[in-house]
Nucleic acid binder design. Structure first.
Length: 847
RNA sequence: GUCGGAGUGGCGGAAUUGGCAGACGCGCCAGACUAAGGAUCUGGUGCCCGCAAGGGCGUGGGGGUUCAAGUCCCCCCUCCGACACCA
């Protein structure tokens, strides 16, 4: 290893190394000198590139590809440390590990920068990709860079557009006019998933409602599958629950209500509307019903003497912001309005008044509900405010003092349902509706179709044209990709900047060759990230987005790693894409889920708040890498906390980890402080103990890595090194073969976590060998069994003594040893009344 | 409000099945080396009483099961997260 830079005394020293200047220069640990060497080595030797015909078992590790924001921040470091550890660990275990990296390179930050500076987003983005790639490399992350994917690459755009056209052809992409969420800050529409508490998930601006025609993906076709297939996933409960809530399945009945007058006579125009309910069993208690203010029937059924009030109310609802409409604090009396119309309850045949209320959502169910104040608290409040009668249909338990009663009970005042419990009555009510032809069993989902168009420039163009003759015409596949031009006006106008490029806008219709206009909206960037993990399997494919056999080889992703903030965004969309692509025959039919195991790591906080560029409270990873080195930084991230938990930067113990690595270095570097004292010959008991401890470490670390208890693994390492050091210093220790085995094993186990220093040390110890190419060690089970153990002796459950006994000691021996103890006898007044023995670990004597 | 998750020294946390609570690290204290120490090394460090030996208490609070509870059961408190007019 003559070309290792750490052996070169001419190289400038890092700050951290300055203090060990009294030691031999060649034997000092100088992370800043060895790390770049090994990073170059892994790249040049293609150590972590993996081919599709690799005979080893495939294993796909993936960290969510990052938005290229420039140099890596601590969140990236944490994320990629876990991913990189897994890549190296599984490789040492003999797998062909696919570990690709790419960049989610479309999006608003680059476009906002363009608005500010006038620089086109493309060079801005490319520059930041290079910065981030450099950072990731300096962390020590290793990837198969041949497979790199960038959302804004024309080749990638081509296939994103190709998939969109497939979806369009299959009816999974469609255009419709609907009320949509508009973010005034981002100057674009948003998907439902991107609105949190009435505000834009990105910018925090309150969203406005606009009626616009937009592009949608029919994700609701997959609602049931998206719900059902959550079962088989090895994902955090939190994320699964969030998806389940978001999909929001509810079972019930839908039935038709005829509009009538107060006497029950039908409406001259035969008006009727449907209502959805999860409690059809309570229908006999319906004393009114409620339409959403946006319900199309409102102007038609409103009585003349109520028209003015209704119009005013509808106007008020329109002008109330989403956030206010969702607020539960507003008095119920101001939230509704009588229409003067009536509708017939099919169960009783009686007319009930029709109201409007702003809490009934036009977008859920049928936009109309039946109201049963006796069994629904909201309806109770509304009825009380508007003086509407309340009928109880479920018998309350003894001593019940609440208002609306939502739990199980025996039905009353409910005609043919009387005497039934709630589940029975539900089924009976639905059966009756079906028999009468008045309604049906119905399942509703909260999930809405995915609004994908964005009025922005820096995204994937939607590949369709509008022709006066032929309408919406897809761009032919051989004309893809449709790439955004350079001559655009970025200043936000509320319309896509692409409109400002006449060259882009005006085109000819692929069908009739007449003049046509291009779609100027781009796709949500979540479209790009919904299939990138598939492209990684076959980034070279040029006849399809990917070839099926490559997908079959690598997919699904064995371990996906990223932030939990994508629970209902990326992680839902990617599942939808995978299922849709499989059903369209683009991906293998059997591929139902993209990510088998998901790990969501915690956030990094500083002084209690999230670290972010906008808060200006970043701790730059680069500064730490430039002083203490990447291995120390990685180890500190692993050690600080369980990986899934949020981390306060203050708790990250860099010093302890730096000290630990220095210690490992001194123990294992050839010519280090203990070398001279090593002896050959027979093993002592001390040596055997070290050998046992080493096997124990192999078992413990392997298990900790497998359960992602990295902080525990680091603790085991530290405890072991303390033990090793103690053994080396002791008179009886220092047997050469044992120590060499111990040290080599330590370096192997540490290699996934601290790749640079272990590579350097291994290379020096083994004549240029490579620790990451050595198979992962296995513990000898025989060495894990101790021949003597410390037995705990309790008196009345309190520990009174500890006695060494043989590991195979029987009950009689253990009890005899326990009774022989003076300390035990001092607490024992005569013979014990009861003896519980768990040989050889414990004896409990009860006086 | 509903549903999850959690609560262990000064701090982060460990304890896989009910069986030695506090591994390991940080911090702190003492010592060694030293011209010096914000380097390195060694030892100590849950709380209370005690010179010590030793003893008592101790995993958010209260009750219970058990020879034995951080771990299991019931009630309560606090914190975090998700959902929150979805009919």
């Amino acid at each position: 290893m003559s070309d290792s830079p750490a052996g070169d005394p001419e190289t400038t020293r890092g700050d951290a190394a300055a203090d060990i200047s009294d030691e031999d220069a060649a034997s000092a640990y100088r992370p800043t000198e060895i790390e770049p060497y090994w990073q170059d080595y892994w790249r040049e030797h293609r150590t972590y590139e993996v081919d599709d015909d690799d005979p080893r078992p495939p294993y796909y590790v993936l960290c969510m590809y990052p938005y290229p924001s420039g140099n890596a921040h601590m969140g990236h470091v944490r994320n990629y440390t876990f991913g990189d550890l897994l890549t190296r660990y599984r490789t040492m275990q003999g797998d062909a590990v696919l570990s690709p990296m790419g960049f989610d390179s479309f999006g608003l930050p680059a476009e906002n920068a363009a608005i500010k500076t006038g620089v086109h987003p493309r060079p801005y983005t490319d520059e930041r990709i290079e910065m981030l790639r450099g950072s990731i490399t300096r962390i020590g992350g290793v990837y198969d860079w041949r497979r790199e994917v960038r959302s804004h690459d024309p080749e990638y755009i081509r296939w994103t557009q190709w998939i969109f056209l497939k979806f369009l052809e299959a009816g999974l992409a469609y255009r419709k006019a609907a009320p949509v969420n508009w973010c005034p800050g981002c100057q674009t529409v948003l998907a439902n998933e991107q609105v949190v508490d009435g505000a834009c998930e990105r910018s925090g601006d309150l969203v406005e409602r606009r009626d616009l025609e937009q592009w949608y993906f029919r994700i609701t076709d997959y609602a049931q599958q998206l719900l059902d297939d959550l079962e088989g996933l090895d994902w955090p409960d939190r994320v699964v629950t969030q998806q389940r809530n978001w999909i929001g399945r509810s079972e019930g009945a839908q039935f038709t209500m005829a509009v009538v007058d107060a006497e029950g006579a039908g409406h001259p125009d035969g008006l009727e509307f449907d209502v959805f309910t999860t409690r059809p069993d309570t229908s006999f208690g319906m004393t009114f019903c409620v339409l959403a203010p946006e319900h199309p029937l409102v102007p038609l059924l409103t009585a003349d003497d109520r028209r003015e009030a209704v119009e005013a109310f509808v106007e008020q609802a329109r002008n109330t912001s989403e956030i206010d409409r969702l607020s539960t604090d507003r008095p119920v009396g101001t939230r509704g309005c009588a229409t003067g119309a009536f509708a017939r309850n099919p169960f009783t045949g009686q007319p009930v008044p029709v109201y409007l209320a702003d809490y009934v959502l036009a977008t859920y169910g049928t936009g109309a509900v039946m109201a049963v104040p006796g069994e629904d608290q909201r309806d109770w409040d509304f009825a009380t405010a508007f003086g509407i009668p309340i009928v109880e249909t479920v018998t309350r338990p003894e001593g019940w003092e609440g208002e609306a009663y939502a739990a199980d009970g025996v039905h009353k005042n409910s005609g043919f349902l009387d005497g039934m419990d709630v589940p029975t009555a539900k089924a009976a009510a639905i059966d009756w509706l079906v028999e009468e032809g008045a309604g049906e069993r119905k399942v509703n989902f909260r999930l809405r179709d995915w609004l994908l168009s964005r009025q922005r420039f820096w995204g994937c163009p939607i590949p369709v044209v509008y022709c006066d003759t032929d309408g919406i015409v897809p761009v032919p596949l051989d004309q893809l990709p449709v790439v955004a031009p350079d001559d655009v006006e970025f200043t936000p106008t509320g319309q896509s900047p692409l409109l400002s490029s006449p060259e882009f806008l005006h085109t000819t219709c692929p069908t009739c060759s007449g003049p046509a206009r291009r779609e100027t909206d781009t796709m949500d960037t979540f479209v790009d990230s919904s299939w990138y993990f598939l492209r990684f399997c076959d980034p070279w494919s040029d006849e399809a987005p990917f070839r099926q056999d490559r997908i079959e080889r690598w997919m699904p992703v064995d371990q996906y790693i990223g932030g939990a903030e994508h629970a209902v965004l990326h992680l839902m969309y990617a599942r939808f894409f995978t299922k849709a692509l499989a059903d369209l025959g683009v991906a293998p039919k059997e591929l139902r889920e993209p990510f088998q195991r998901l790990f969501t790591q915690g956030m990094i906080r500083l002084a209690g708040t999230k670290m972010s560029k906008s808060k200006g409270n970043l701790v730059a990873p680069e500064e730490i890498i430039d002083t203490l080195g990447a291995d120390t930084l990685r180890l500190a991230h692993l050690a600080v906390k369980p990986p899934e938990e949020d981390v306060d930067w203050e708790d990250v113990g860099l010093e302890g980890c730096a000290r630990f690595l220095q210690r490992v270095w001194r123990i294992s570097v050839p010519g280090g402080e203990f070398d001279a004292a090593l002896r050959d010959g027979a093993e002592t008991a001390e040596d055997t103990a070290l050998l046992r401890a080493t096997h124990r470490l192999v078992a413990d670390v392997t298990e900790a890595f497998d359960r992602w208890s990295y902080h525990v693994a680091v603790a085991k390492f530290m405890a072991y090194v303390n033990e090793l050091q103690r053994s080396l210093r002791s008179e009886a220790g220092g047997h050469r073969a044992t120590v060499e085995f111990a040290t080599d094993t330590l370096l192997q186990l540490l290699a996934p976590a601290c790749p640079h220093m272990t590579a350097e040390l291994w290379s020096r110890r083994h004549d240029g060998g490579h620790v990451h190419e050595v198979p992962w060690p296995a513990a000898d089970p025989a060495m894990l069994v101790e021949d003597s153990v410390t037995m705990v002796v309790q008196v009345a459950g309190k520990v009174r003594d500890r006695i060494e006994v043989a590991a195979d000691a029987d009950e009689a021996t253990c009890v005899a040893a326990a009774l022989a103890s003076e300390k035990v006898q001092a607490h024992l007044d005569g013979e014990p009344r009861k003896v519980i023995a768990r040989p050889p670990k414990l004896v409990n004597l009860v006086p």
